[in-house]
Amino acid sequence: MSKSNMFKLSAIGAAAALALSAGPVAAEEVTNVGTPVTEKAIADWDISVYFDGENLPEGSGTLMQGEEIYLAQCAMCHGEFGEGAKGYPKMLGAPKEEFIEAAKSGEDTVGIRGINNFWGHAPTLYDYIRRAMPFFAPASLSDDQSYAVTGYVLYLAEVIGWTDEPIDAEFIKNVEMPMEEQYYTDPRPDVDNDRCMKNCYAGKEIEVKGKAVIGDVSVGEVEKAKRD
């Protein structure tokens, strides 16, 4: 291992110093722990797809195939038309403009989220469906089936129109997600509270605005319900 190629770490020095102080048999570096592998040996492990579509597999499916799988394995939770069910997420949320308008007016937007207004990149939708869906049988869809279902979900979410084209890596990479440009990385800290210690409201009245109203979630009530 060439030292110059290694990640620069301040911790290296400290670790080495500790090892040296351990006694006359001190080791200077870790050797012979673990088993070397080639990337080829673990290729089947590497199912992660990047936002830009890197590592999307070969294969394809059609919306027709996707519809069949979706109705059999997905619709009971996500709704026949992607409207969600039983507390599971919608595929089709409010249209982007409506979603943004609701956000600006302060309305609750949690219940109107869907693939069309809360997902930045189509390739990671493929990744998620292939690795974790359907919920009760994760990783049971083949690569081709995953393409079919991803395409159908994008169709239900009104991100794409109906097409008879094969849904494959090229297709998924070229899907434009409505909200992609709405994402931005953490700007925090975004608030700046004072450490006021005395007379912080300058004589203004304190007002209790709300008390917890959902009594049945208090621990006492939970325990009482169990006893009854």
């Binding site: 994402y183 990385t185 953490d186």
Partner: peptide, 11 residues
């Protein structure tokens, strides 16, 4: 989700 309709990521 922010009140301007944008979405913070990597928070």
């Amino acid at each position: 989700a922010m009140p301007d309709g944008r979405i913070r990521q990597f928070t």
